[in-house]
């Protein structure tokens, strides 16, 4: 504990003339549940995309350090390389492989980090079969963990919102990450599902030792779950601290009251 898993320094991301992230500096400790909040358009998803290699910010550095104390610079790396380094993510509008079954979705994650092995795949050698059995086993365990065992053979497109979120989490975990980035995991779920989801996220951290980085609009969920928060507004970090500190921070309240998300500010108080 205490070592940094993400170290983001002075990151600036521009699209044409539009500044999406402005001098963002933040860090995440290993094993921490960290949340990023902010009104719509504050740059939260842009930050996620920068952390996973989808966008390449023009300025600043993003360092990801794995448990063997090896650091890689994320900027300029392709998403699959970042994933291979140990960063998993979910998407805001969940992106499953909708024509596949739940099981197949997770299995893809479980086997995506191996080499190509085409010849093995064509000839179905003993090593390939063993790999396949291992992935099946890992997939089963993960489905059990997120509670989707009974829906293992359901086509992903016909899952409920809550189940899709859990599926995405399982699929991300299948890649054996060190940090899991969750982009609005509670969007579209009902209150009961939200509670389950919060429990699941905490279990991911406690039982699997995976750090969590979270974007969420649902303040109740964030405040109960996160150990530390950063507040983004117009692409800049305007505050950071524990949930209690954030609740009391006048700048944050101002930012929320000044925006259309006044209702969120109510919850923040």
């Amino acid at each position: 504990m205490g070592s940094l898993i993400f170290d983001v320094q002075d990151v600036t991301l521009r699209f044409g003339g539009v500044v999406s992230l402005n001098n963002v500096t933040l860090h995440q400790n290993r094993g921490e549940i960290l949340a990023i909040i902010g009104p719509n358009g504050a740059g939260k998803t842009s930050l996620f995309n920068s952390l996973t290699g989808v966008y390449a910010p023009q300025e600043g550095t993003i360092l990801f350090t794995n448990s063997q104390d090896k650091s890689i610079s994320v900027i300029g790396k392709k998403p699959f390389r970042v994933s291979n380094a140990g960063v998993a993510r979910t998407f805001q509008a969940s992106r499953m492989f909708s024509a596949m079954t739940t099981f197949e979705n997770v299995k893809i994650g479980a086997e995506s980090h191996r080499g190509l092995g085409v010849v093995g795949a064509m000839l179905k050698g003993p090593a390939t079969r063993r790999d396949d059995r291992n992935s099946d086993q890992a997939t089963k365990e993960l489905l059990e963990f997120v509670g989707l065992t009974s829906q293992a053979n359901t086509i992903a497109a016909s899952l409920s919102y809550g189940a899709r979120r859990r599926l995405e989490i399982a699929r991300g975990l299948a890649t054996k990450p060190e940090v899991l980035l969750l982009d609005e995991p509670a969007a579209g779920t009902n209150p009961a599902e939200k509670i389950e989801l919060a429990q699941l996220i905490r279990r991911v951290r406690d039982e699997m030792g995976v750090s969590i980085l979270l974007i969420e609009h649902d303040m109740k969920l964030v405040m109960s779950l996160a150990e530390r928060l950063y507040v983004l507004n117009f692409g800049s970090v305007i505050a950071s601290g524990t949930p209690d500190e954030i609740r009391a921070n006048p700048v944050v309240i101002e930012a929320y009251l000044g925006s259309a998300d006044a209702g969120v500010a109510e919850e923040t108080k």
Binding site: P79, R95, A99, M100
Partner: peptide, 14 residues
Amino acid sequence: VAIREDEVAAESLG
């Protein structure tokens, strides 16, 4: 199949 269905998601899985 994964790439065919959703390249972005596939890439995020490595």
